[in-house]
Design a protein around this nucleic acid. Structure first.
Lengths: 120, 120
DNA sequence: GTAACCACTATACTTTTGTATATCGATATA
DNA sequence: TATATCGATATACAAAAGTATAGTGGTTAC
């Protein structure tokens, strides 16, 4: 690849592609997003179920992160008109498709560990 | 999948897999790691070249992030005995292989945007 | 009537992350 | 002699992220 081609690619990269990467990172970053998504990958859950499933999380953080995930279209929130109310959180299609990204990250992570071992 | 099978999978997941994902996230997280890796994907660079290529970064942050990336085996640092010294930063094999992860993230990010558009 | 459960919210605080600005020692250039 | 370059480091500060602890309003069980 010559310099101007590389430059063009770098330019096209920096606009949509970097944005796309940041979108992806933003739904995974933070201490609690991954644990929440991890639990929801096994099916929909209620607030207290999530709280119990994720050791150490406070209701404040759970509430905050769920709101963000909902805003970003990763999680859907459904309120059932029972007494008392039942609220269920579930992964959207986008949310479910994160599994592929996570699988890729697992692959890279395991491979990286192996390479770092042999480096020493 | 029955409950005990799901539980076993969740358990096996929570140990190595979650660690692997976190390893991957840790090399990407932070305001400046992605820009640095992005530039280095086009070839090795010197300290000042990186500083110039990444608008807004301070030498403090560049130095700090490069140290972390080196410690994590993503970047190699080579000092040449010239006058004045030349220092070159280059992606390791692990670092280069991040491209696959980033490509996956680009795919997910673009797809997610499309789905969110149609959601409205 | 009091204790517990659900789905949260409020307030105050600590820790982590990032910024701003100046400086270092060695060397080269005008 | 003054100024600039390289590859950083030092100090102080601001902003963001996360924690601790308590409380809300409604409902059910004992």
């Amino acid at each position: 690849m010559n310099t101007s081609k590389a430059f063009e690619k770098a330019k096209s990269c920096s606009s949509q592609f970097i944005l796309a990467i940041n979108d992806t990172l933003n739904v995974l970053i933070g201490k609690w997003k991954l644990p929440i998504i991890g639990v929801l990958l096994y099916g929909k859950k209620r607030f207290k179920e999530l709280e119990r499933a994720i050791p150490g999380i406070t209701p404040r953080m759970l509430s905050k992160e769920l709101k963000e995930l909902e805003l970003n279209g990763i999680v859907t929130r459904t309120v059932y008109d029972t007494i008392p109310v039942t609220v269920e959180y579930e992964l959207s299609n986008s949310g479910k498709s994160l599994r592929e990204v996570l699988d890729m990250m697992i692959q890279w992570g395991l491979n990286h560990r192996k390479q770092n071992m042999s480096r020493k």
